[in-house]
Simulated assay, not measured.
Amino acid sequence: MADAAFTPRVFSGIKPSGGLTLGNYLGAIKRFVGMQGGDFETIYCVVDMHAVTVWQNPDDLRTATREVAAGYLASGIDPSKSILFNQSRVSAHAELGWLFNCVARVGWMNRMTQFKDKAGKNSEQVSLGLYAYPSLMAADILAYHATHVPVGEDQKQHVELTRDIAKKFNHDYKVDFFPETTPVIEGPAMRVMNLRDGTKKMSKSGESDMERVNMLDDADTIAKKFKKSRSDQDVLPDSMDGLADRAEARNLVNIYAALADISNDAVLAEYGGQGWGKFKPALADLAVEKLAPISGEMRRFMDDPAEIDRIMAHGADKARAIAEPILNKTFDIMGFVR
C-alpha cells in the first residue's frame, strides 16, 4: 500500500520507567524536535501504559510520567507544533490494542527479541502485558495512521510487527485502511552506550549512576561523569575504522558528534592523534553547554506539575480527535454493532 494515501504523520513515545537519560535525549527526543514544523504532523507520547507491564509504584509512575513530559518540553517540543500527551488519557490505544491482539499471531510475538531479553529465564512469571505489549505499540502507531516512526535499531522489529498487523488487517477485511508504517533510523548516536561499559546500552536501571548521564543532572555532575568515563590507552584515530574494536572510545566520539551536530569523521578530523586528556574535557564542556540548560528547564517544569498536566490534557484532546474516528472505523470494518 502506498503511504501517499495517508497524511504524513510521525508518532513516537518514551516509556516513563525511571528518569530520562542522555540516551533518551540523543536517541529520541533531539530527533523528535528536529522533525517539528517539517513535512510531517508530529505526535509525541509518554507511553505510561507500557510502563506497567512491570509493577510500578504509583507515585513513582506519576513523577516519571511528568519527567518525560518535562524532558520533551525542555528540549524544544512545542505543544503548538506537536501533539504531546500521555497514552493513558486516550482510550483508543487500549481498545485498538485489544483488536490487534486478535489480529497478531502468537508466532509473531514469540519472535520478539526484546521480550526474550526482558523476561530472561523468568518468562513464565512475567505479565501477559509484557508479552503482548508489541501489539499495544502497534495500536499506539496505527491509532493515528502514523506513516513514520523514528526509532532506534533495537525497536525496528516492533515497527516491522506493526507493518505485519496493518497488512494482515487490510488483507483479512479487504480494505486499504491502515498504512504500512516506515521506521526512521538515522543519526550518529542512535544507540548511546554505557559510560563505564561501551558494549552495553546506557540505561536508567544500571547499577551505578556514573554509567549514565541523567537529564536532570546539574552541570558539575555532567562534567564529572564524562571526565571519569571509561576510555582506553590509545590516542584517537584519524578515521572511524580505527574505532572498530574500541567500544568505549567509539561511544564517546558518537556522543560528541551527536551533541555538536557534526559527523564522526569531523570529530576525528579535529581530535585524531590526540589523547583523552584533551578530548574528555572538551566533551564535558560540550555536554554541559548543550545539556545543562535543558536540565534547568526540566527542573522548572517539574516544579509546576499542574502546568505539565494541563499541557498533556490539551494534547490528549487533540490526539483523541484523530484517534477516535480511526478506532470507530476499525470497529465498523470488523463488524461491531456500535
Rank of each mutant, 00 (worst) to 15 (best):
V33C: 05
V33K: 02
V33D: 01
V33L: 07
V33G: 05
G34E: 09
M35I: 11
M35D: 07
M35T: 09
M35P: 12
M35S: 11
Q36D: 05
Q36M: 10
Q36N: 07
G37K: 11
G37M: 10
G37T: 10
G37F: 05
G38W: 05
G38E: 04
D39L: 11
F40S: 14
F40W: 14
F40D: 15
E41C: 08
E41N: 15
E41W: 06
E41F: 06
T42L: 09
T42K: 12
T42S: 14
I43M: 14
I43T: 12
I43G: 01
C45G: 08
V46D: 02
V47N: 03
V47D: 07
V47P: 06
V47T: 13
V47Y: 02
V47G: 02
D48M: 01
D48W: 00
M49K: 11
M49F: 10
M49D: 10
M49L: 15
H50R: 01
H50T: 10
A51Y: 03
A51Q: 04
A51R: 00
V52L: 09
T53F: 02
T53D: 04
T53K: 03
V54A: 11
V54Y: 10
V54T: 15
Q56E: 13
Q56Y: 03
Q56P: 01
N57Y: 05
N57K: 14
N57A: 10
N57E: 12
P58H: 00
P58S: 06
P58A: 09
P58R: 00
P58K: 04
D59I: 06
D59C: 06
D59W: 06
D59L: 12
D60F: 11
D60L: 14
L61I: 07
L61T: 00
L61H: 04
L61R: 05
L61K: 09
R62D: 00
R62W: 01
R62A: 06
R62Q: 09
T63P: 07
A64M: 14
A64H: 14
T65R: 04
T65C: 01
R66Q: 08
